[in-house]
Design a protein around this nucleic acid. Structure first.
Lengths: 182, 182
DNA sequence: GATTAAACGGAGTGACGACTTCGAATATAT
DNA sequence: ATATATTCGAAGTCGTCACTCCGTTTAATC
């Protein structure tokens, strides 16, 4: 692969992440303009808009997974779990915008993005189980509903444009529900 | 106003509620077809697509508000509060689709819909305070974060397409966090 | 039942956005 | 430096969608 092609590809990904993270309804032209390339260059690297969105979403998911993996094996699994939860909610805004752009483009997440999603959930599951073993999270809470809480808190915070303080108070309520019953 | 005009207006609203509730990206033609009228008739009653979406969203919000008002003054405020919460989450899917359609159409909710939203939140606040007075909900939880929980749970359940069982388990976790600390 | 004001439908119109084409430019190998 | 294969970008194409125009129909009144 030629050097300029590789550069452009990276620039396009960065621009797309930025643009779609801001407004899910953005056009491919917007991405090209921000990346400083022509439209054709965007479509040479990503055959369809959907493909571009998927690539960006996959990257985001992988980053979140890596964050979870970093925290896995911490000697304070309870703190690790809640810290991860908080971080994901705090940073979810732009990621959700990208996911929304994908569905608005009339396509479910493709194989690549789905795989990244599975990897992320697996890493999150690891954090959850460790926190439960350490007695920081109630043992009867299972992955599906806890993950639903995570996505729900993310979407709720994003949709309602919560300020940081209200968001933390909401999380405090959720965390109280997740802690072991006395 | 002529009788056929009133009929058509009602038919259009019903059709729009149905169509946009299913798929936020639907076109105005789809609505007209389902309502059994021409496109021009839709635009005669609602000057823009945004206006139609707002009307439908407002109606939904008012219905939710009415549900809350019905439950207000119950002699079991705790049960009333949690029942309302559960109902809203269970039925949120199509309402959220409509709200999404509005933002996708590039417009925030107009004055009418905002007013309906305020009314709904006020009614919800009434339920919350009554439940707190009855000792069913912890007293230190305030409206903004509790409302954020409601919208978050709704959006999370919708986005993740939770089955009823997982949704209830998620709600149980939330409710445990909302109940008074022992 | 004739009148008429209001409402109706469906064929436009214009804008926008995803995707293509093709001649110009440029990185790499010799 | 030159050759050439690859990549680039601007000007298209095509389809879709919100919205309009206008001749026709219909509900209400006398």
């Amino acid at each position: 692969m030629r050097a300029d092609a590789r550069d452009n590809r990276a620039r396009i990904m960065t621009a797309a992440d930025d643009v779609f993270g801001r407004s899910p309804g953005a056009s491919t032209d917007d991405v090209a303009k921000l990346a400083g390339v022509g439209i054709a260059t965007v479509f040479r690297h990503f055959a369809t808009k959907t493909e571009l969105l998927e690539a960006v979403l996959t990257l985001r998911l992988e980053r979140i997974r890596d964050r979870a993996l970093e925290l896995t094996g911490s000697d304070d699994p309870g703190t690790a779990f809640f810290e991860f939860f908080t971080q994901v909610v705090a940073e979810s805004e732009s990621k959700l915008a990208i996911a929304e752009a994908l569905t608005a483009a009339g396509a479910a997440a493709g194989e690549e993005a789905q795989e990244a999603g599975r990897g992320m959930r697996a890493a999150f599951d690891g954090l959850l189980i460790a926190a439960q073993k350490a007695g920081a999270v109630r043992a009867d809470a299972e992955m599906p509903e806890v993950y639903a809480l995570l996505t729900g808190a993310s979407r709720g915070a994003t949709a309602a444009k919560l300020d940081a303080e209200t968001r933390d108070r909401m999380l405090a309520l959720i965390y109280d529900g997740l802690k072991p019953r006395p």
